[in-house]
Write a protein that binds this DNA or RNA. Structure first.
Length: 428
RNA sequence: GCAGGUGUCGCCAAGUGGUUAAGGCCCCGGAUUGUGGUUCCGGUAUUCGCGGGUUCGAAUCCCGUCAUCUGCCCCA
């Protein structure tokens, strides 16, 4: 039978021709934004040694604990399909000696990520992200820049309804004090916390703040805030960043419970959320922050860094269906040689063109059937070169929208189609 | 990992134990051998996600399994 008996794995899906153009358009807009900010693309492998993710994302995180696609290769080495982009980029930055370049080194990536999770709206096991990473600058200017860039990227693809949430989770010096305060604060409430949070209490009390089950409780509002316990250096950084954003008219809401689920963050963390119901139970479309210890943690020189990643599937959900902007010229001919030659001339000039390929037999279908085919393909123009036209060395051109038809000599055809394309307002 | 909904042609679906499984869209062919989108006619599921069971008889009932959707947790 014509039905394939093998199903695709759970949580993966195909991007089909009727939607791939939306992805392409978004990608073009995003690339142009990133290029304007002088970010350069890096392409890393989609799998790495498992150890890389354990050490960078963190042993205590959900991603490492239950969501990684890990397998043994034929030499019995443990490999993992990347669950996020930053770890691989940092690894590649070090593997290739990019730390020898003049800072900041600004990189971006596009590509699939893998997390073994329950599928639901806005969440699948293979999904795509675009992300940026900037290495080598400690000051808050690059924090501000990356947040503004994220905002610009979203606007460039047509998303204007989003909220920026921002927080500072301090550094290696001030975090222990805050942690201690949290432990003291939550200790009397320990029995009221959910099971997960009781574990977080021991491992990483900061993440209790992130728990959606518990943080609706009234007393959470009184939980010690990281911002109130920042060391002087972190406080300066934080205040300067807020000033910068304010000066740039970027509205960012401080969310003191925002801590993010990956271990490598410090100081600035932020999330872009949408309240659209198109995202189902999800709200976050972009997340990131500073990770000043990761490069050193993976064996490199002490290097401050910051980055973010955006989920493209969620972007697509927000964008919805979009029409493809195309300008197709369909060449109708009695004789395949002539039709194909004209179509190829048009293609040489960068004009999308097509001819009829009969499903069965060797001969062209009649003109009526060929125009029918042109209509099915949504052609803008039909060029007819039948016997009549060939004798006169010309072509009949039909505008499929208006139905109007004119004739033009064959040597002016390509020019005519080009002008027509401009007139009809279709670029590509 | 847990809770609930769903699985009949590429898509949307009727059918709820009894002869050959409605219909619509798409697709294919014709009316129409130099002009599409409208109309009309015709064609396309040995089979109801898969496996097993109950029954004289199952798409319809039961068990299992797989997939999918929605939600919890967490994230993009």
């Amino acid at each position: 039978m014509d039905k394939v008996s093998i199903q695709p794995p759970r949580g993966v899906y195909d991007i089909l021709p009727n939607e791939s153009h939306i992805w392409q358009n978004a990608e073009i807009s995003i690339r142009s934004c990133l290029k304007a900010a002088s970010y350069k693309e890096i392409r890393t492998p989609i799998f790495e040694q498992t150890e890389l993710f354990k050490r960078s994302v963190g042993e205590g995180t959900d991603i490492v604990n239950k969501e990684m696609y890990t397998f043994q290769d034929k030499s019995d080495r443990s490999m993992t399909l990347r669950p996020e982009g930053t770890a691989s980029v940092v690894r590649a930055y070090l593997s290739n000696g990019l730390q020898r370049q003049a800072p900041p080194v600004k990189l971006f990536y596009f590509g699939p990520m893998f997390r073994y999770e329950r599928v639901q709206k806005g969440r699948q096991r293979q999904f795509h992200q675009v992300g940026i990473e900037a290495f080598g600058s400690e000051g808050p200017a690059i924090d501000a820049e990356s947040i503004v860039l994220a905002s610009n990227v979203l606007q460039a693809v047509g998303i204007n309804e989003f909220e920026i949430q921002i927080n500072s989770i301090g550094c290696i010096n001030c975090r222990p004090q805050h942690k201690q305060k949290l432990i003291e604060f939550f200790k009397p409430h320990l029995n009221n916390l959910c099971i997960d949070c009781r574990e977080r209490f021991d491992k990483n009390p900061l993440r209790i703040l992130d728990c959606k089950q518990d943080n609706s409780q009234p007393y959470f509002a009184d939980a010690p805030k990281n911002i109130d316990h920042l060391c002087q250096a972190c406080l300066d950084h934080w205040q300067k960043l807020l000033e910068l954003l304010n000066g740039l008219s970027v509205k960012a809401n401080i969310n003191s419970t925002l801590v993010r689920g990956l271990d490598y963050y410090n100081r600035t963390v932020f999330e872009f959320v949408s309240h659209s119901d198109r995202l189902g139970a999800q709200s976050s479309i972009l997340g990131g922050g500073r990770y000043d210890y990761l490069v050193e943690g993976l064996g490199g020189p002490s290097t401050p860094a910051i980055g973010w990643a955006m989920g493209l599937e969620r972007l697509m959900l927000l964008l919805g269906e979009q029409k493809e902007n195309s300008f197709l010229t369909f060449v109708v001919a009695d004789n395949t040689d002539i039709g194909l030659k004209i179509a190829l001339d048009l293609r040489k000039a960068g004009l999308e063109s097509e001819i009829d390929y009969p499903p069965t037999g060797y001969n062209n279908r009649n003109i009526s059937r060929q125009i029918q085919q042109a209509n099915k393909l949504n052609a803008s123009l039909v060029v007819i070169v039948g016997e009549k036209e060939i004798k006169a060395n010309e072509a009949s051109i039909k505008d499929m929208q208006t139905g109007e038809q004119t004739t033009i000599s064959l040597d002016k055809l390509v020019n005519y189609v080009q002008e027509k394309q401009i007139k009809m307002g279709c670029k590509q």
